[in-house]
Design a protein around this nucleic acid. Structure first.
Lengths: 239, 239
DNA sequence: CGTCGGGTTGAGTCCATTCAACTTCGGTGG
DNA sequence: CCACCGAAGTTGAATGGACTCAACCCGACG
């Protein structure tokens, strides 16, 4: 059941059986969310962190003019709000972009882990650090990449992240979001988002139909994106 | 000597004398960097993390076309590369934007802290989480704010962060960077950066001369920026 | 006294936005 | 059964924001 989490944490360093059991031990309630529902709402102070077992979710903020910006996409195996364990107050919301299966980890349990399981603590810390590394890559993409390169980069990133948790199918993966939601990832208008997608399609790099993204030319897509997966820290080494 | 670090970590929760001593204990070599020097270079695997005691530094990435994007600004009291403790390989560089006074913390020492001092470990973890929260706010600013609002937001953020480490002077603070460096923060061309700065000047919100930034109208600046400091987690509470 | 880095301004081009129309498709109700 | 509806995608045209290119100013410095 926690397989995606073990795959996610375990990609960086070996997880012992004891550590797996300990992680399982802090999990309590399970819950399903419908598309569009908030998994966590802005301004709240959750007493648990949410592990995404299945589905696609996103962190977001909304401005006064109504503009929405996603600040991350969360895939199965991601702790969508592990940072709330120490930050306490949610400064953003988290929304389900598809039906989501979530399980909660009580903060009290996480605290016990930090008191008694140093290596596991470091792996959880690392998980939030990779989050930060992804944020930095997104900042670079928003600031200095062309829009097509930005989209290409995002597709590369999602593919690699989903591969880790075994949610890819050949060169395809399920991407259950609309173009207007994608526009809120890249910070574009819907109309322009549509044109950017079409430029990658016409270049023969991707196909995206029926919520299925397929990479048609992995090599050239990586080139357009200048994609270097170093920032995802995928190597397994002592941490 | 470590005062800025204690102010920075201590803003979130009380630091005991023992914890302060422990932090002091992991510090080793000190070093000064000149403006423009790399404090940490991309691709390296540092065995220590760098604490900024004085000066202004920035994380950055460079694209193939030569474009540079800063992904964060670091002020005194910031661990500029604490994430390298667990991420291991630097996926970006860190450059001194002014003369910088830095002291190094050996990773072996940090590991001992994680094994023996759970509360202090959580505070260090928290430090990297605030980093991530700032990244998210930058993503929102780059994606959905107007350029003037983005700049206004950055000025608000820097002011508040510098206030914590007592580096403000009334409504002014030292900001030793050029407009072209600022352009690499916002992801703009130099020419347009200049025009955005002038629009805030003409609106009577800021003055920025001689590397000194002065906030002339804090209230209206916050309004233009839609600045809400929640994401900086400044309250002191048990963590 | 000349040069160089940083800042400023104008003009033209290109990118991204808005507004608006139209299509497709699945769902829903008369 | 089919007419209607709404959500999502697509396209065109006009506006406005951001870029490049280029010139010029200015103070610091050799």
């Amino acid at each position: 059941m926690f397989e995606p989490l073990f795959l996610n944490l375990g990609q960086h360093d070996a997880l012992s059986d004891g550590e797996k059991a300990m992680l399982g031990g802090v999990m309590s309630l399970e819950r399903h969310f419908l598309t569009g529902q908030d998994i966590v709402s802005i301004g709240t102070r959750p007493t648990y962190s949410s592990l995404l077992l299945d589905g696609l979710a996103a962190r977001y903020k909304v401005l006064e003019n109504g503009g929405r910006q996603f600040t991350s996409l969360q895939v199965p195996g991601d702790f969508v709000d592990l940072h709330a364990f120490l930050l306490k107050t949610m400064d953003h919301g988290i929304v389900a972009l598809s039906p989501c299966h979530v399980i909660f980890a009580e903060h009290s349990g996480l605290r016990v882990i930090t008191e008694t399981a140093a290596h596991l603590t470091r792996l959880l810390w690392l998980d939030t650090l990779v989050d930060g590394a992804i944020h930095r890559e997104w900042i670079v993409a928003m600031g200095r990449r062309s829009k097509t390169s930005h989209l290409a980069h995002l597709v590369c990133e999602l593919f690699v992240r989903l591969q880790v948790v075994e949610r890819t199918n050949g060169m395809s993966f399920h991407l259950p979001m609309s173009q207007s939601e994608m526009a809120d990832v890249l910070g574009l208008s819907v109309v322009h988002m549509n044109r950017v997608i079409q430029s990658l399609r016409k270049a023969g790099l991707i196909s995206w139909v029926n919520h299925t993204m397929t990479i048609l030319d992995w090599h050239r897509l990586q080139e357009v994106a200048e994609f270097d997966p170093t920032y995802l820290s995928m190597g397994r080494e002592p941490r």
